[in-house]
Computed example of a mutant assay.
Amino acid sequence: MHNALEVVTTVVVGVMVGVEFSVPFFTNPIFNALPGDNGLRARTHGARLGGAVMPFWYIGSLVLVGAWAIGGWNHPGTGLVVTAGALLILSVIMSLTLLVPINNRVKTWTADNRPEDWKEQLNRWDRWHYVRIAVIIAAFACLAAALV
Rank of each mutant, 00 (worst) to 15 (best):
R48W: 07
H2R: 05
L122I: 11
A145H: 15
L96P: 04
I93N: 02
H45C: 06
A141Q: 13
W118F: 07
G66W: 11
M94H: 05
C142S: 13
E20H: 00
Y58H: 13
V13P: 00
T108D: 12
L98G: 09
A84G: 07
F26R: 07
L147Q: 15
T108Q: 14
V106K: 08
V81T: 08
I59H: 00
F140C: 14
F25K: 04
L64C: 07
F31I: 01
G46H: 01
W73P: 07
S22I: 02
R41E: 14
I136K: 14
L147C: 14
V19M: 05
V8C: 13
N28M: 10
V81P: 04
K107W: 02
N113D: 13
L147G: 15
N113I: 10
N3W: 01
V12R: 06
K119C: 03
L99H: 08
H2W: 03
M54G: 02
T108G: 14
L96T: 09
P35F: 10
W68G: 00
A47F: 02
T97S: 13
L99P: 05
L99F: 08
R124I: 00
G46W: 00
G72F: 01
P35H: 12
V53A: 02
F21K: 03
V17Y: 07
R105K: 15
S95M: 11
L122F: 08
Y58G: 01
R43D: 06
V81K: 03
L98H: 11
K107V: 04
A111L: 01
V81R: 06
Q121R: 13
L99I: 11
N32K: 12
S91M: 12
L90K: 04
G14P: 03
T10E: 04
A146R: 14
A69K: 05
R41F: 11
G46S: 03
A84E: 06
V135R: 15
N32S: 12
A84I: 03
K107A: 05
F21C: 05
A144V: 15
S91N: 13
V135F: 15
R124T: 08
A146L: 14
R127N: 06
T110R: 10
A138D: 12
D126F: 01
T44S: 08
F56I: 04
L5D: 01
A138P: 11
H2C: 04
I133W: 02
M16D: 04
S95N: 12
A67Q: 03
T97V: 10
W128T: 03
R48G: 10
T78E: 06
T108S: 13
V11P: 04
P24F: 15
A145E: 15
G39N: 05
S61R: 02
V92Y: 09
L122D: 07
N104P: 03
I89K: 05
L62Q: 10
T44W: 00
N123K: 13
I89N: 03
I30P: 00
R48M: 10
L49R: 04
G71F: 03
P101C: 10
G77M: 11
I133Q: 01
I93R: 02
S91L: 10
